[in-house]
Simulated assay, not measured.
Amino acid sequence: MAPQVTRSSQLLDLAVGQPDPALLPVDQFQNCSVNASRLAYGEQTGDASFRKALASWLSEDYGQPVHADRLLLTNGSSNALDMVCTQFGRPGATVLVEDPSYFIAMDLFRERGMNVVAVPMDDEGINLAALEQAIDQYQPNFFYTVPSFHNPTGVTQPLQRRNDLVALCARTQCPIIADEIYQSLYFTQKPPRPLAMFDDDAPVVSIGSFSKILAPGLRLGWIQGTEAIVSRFGNAALLRSGGGLAPVTSALVEPLLLNGEFEQTLNRLRQIYSERADCLYHSLEAAFGEQIHMVRPDGGFFIWLSFVDGRDVSNYQEAAKQAGVNFLPGQLCSENNGFQSSMRLCFAWYSEPQLQEACNRLASVLA
């Protein structure tokens, strides 16, 4: 089976936001087996044994208890977002997103017939005054956010911003959909706990996934929320018809959670991605100097680079491809067609020598 994206021998594509195939833990799945119960229709929120193991690991990683009955398994984070659209959205509804935001999430919302309205960010995440004004003006069905190691900017909401955001959500009863797939992919300091763990009176859905911290081909993720929110998802027609999601893949991952192999893999990824982030950051710094503004990421997959002269980077993309390198133009991440002088660059998919070469190629076109 061919992967979703294949590497070119000529093009170093920093627009691709995927894990390095060389880092996927194939050996850990060589001797896997499943029992008969995992081949049957499973319970609607997902296998109880796996949810218990997942809750135990999340409790340790988050530093606060996570209960299995507040978790529902999904086929990755994209499936979780699609389920959110079914439960919270409708054609013609308005959803709020950060500006900039994850471009495929915005595509998904549009495909469901929803109107996407962008709300500005600052250096600590979503601008709360602007968000409150947008909630009052649009009465949205939900607000979508990436709180930790934001895609695309790399920003992480600090604790006070999260407290204030969830308080706003509780006061207005505007649901928050928190895409927290990078929550555990920190390099040094853990980010504050997921938004679903702040206030049970606030309608918050936190989405997690093993795609970036183990292997995307597993298509295994989870929704975290109050028991009422989990019950709402668990009683959906999709799950009443087909049973819980990912019964086989959760059976493959469960022993890795219990025997510590997953934690070892994740620690290795944190170290490697931290080194790659440093490599890309310093290579860009050396190549462009004071022409650019960027922040060194402390987790996740991306560096957000902006040219201080305001140039439109999309004008250089074809020339960059001819030079053997690609990037994601910032305006693709903006519902308002903003951030034309910015680009998103992924440091996860390539080795350090390849990242250095990619910077050299970028500099040959843009410096």
Rank of each mutant, 00 (worst) to 15 (best):
R112Y: 02
L108R: 15
G125E: 07
A129L: 12
F143D: 01
P140H: 09
A129I: 15
Q133A: 15
F109V: 14
L131T: 03
L108W: 06
A129H: 08
N115M: 09
R110G: 11
Q133P: 14
M121K: 12
M121I: 15
L131Y: 06
M121E: 07
P120W: 03
N141A: 15
E132H: 10
N115P: 00
V119N: 05
I135Q: 11
L131A: 14
G125Y: 03
Q137G: 04
F109M: 11
P140R: 07
A130Y: 01
V119T: 00
N115C: 05
R112P: 11
E124L: 09
M114N: 00
V116C: 02
V117N: 00
E111Q: 09
E132M: 10
E132I: 07
A129V: 14
L128R: 00
L108A: 09
V117I: 12
R110V: 12
V119F: 07
A118T: 02
V116Q: 02
D136W: 06
G125R: 03
N127P: 03
D122Y: 11
A130Q: 08
F143C: 14
E124I: 14
A130P: 02
F143I: 15
M114P: 00
Q137W: 02
I135H: 07
N141I: 14
A134L: 01
Q139V: 09
A118P: 01
P140C: 05
Q137D: 14
A118Q: 00
E132F: 04
R112W: 01
E111L: 11
A130G: 00
L128T: 10
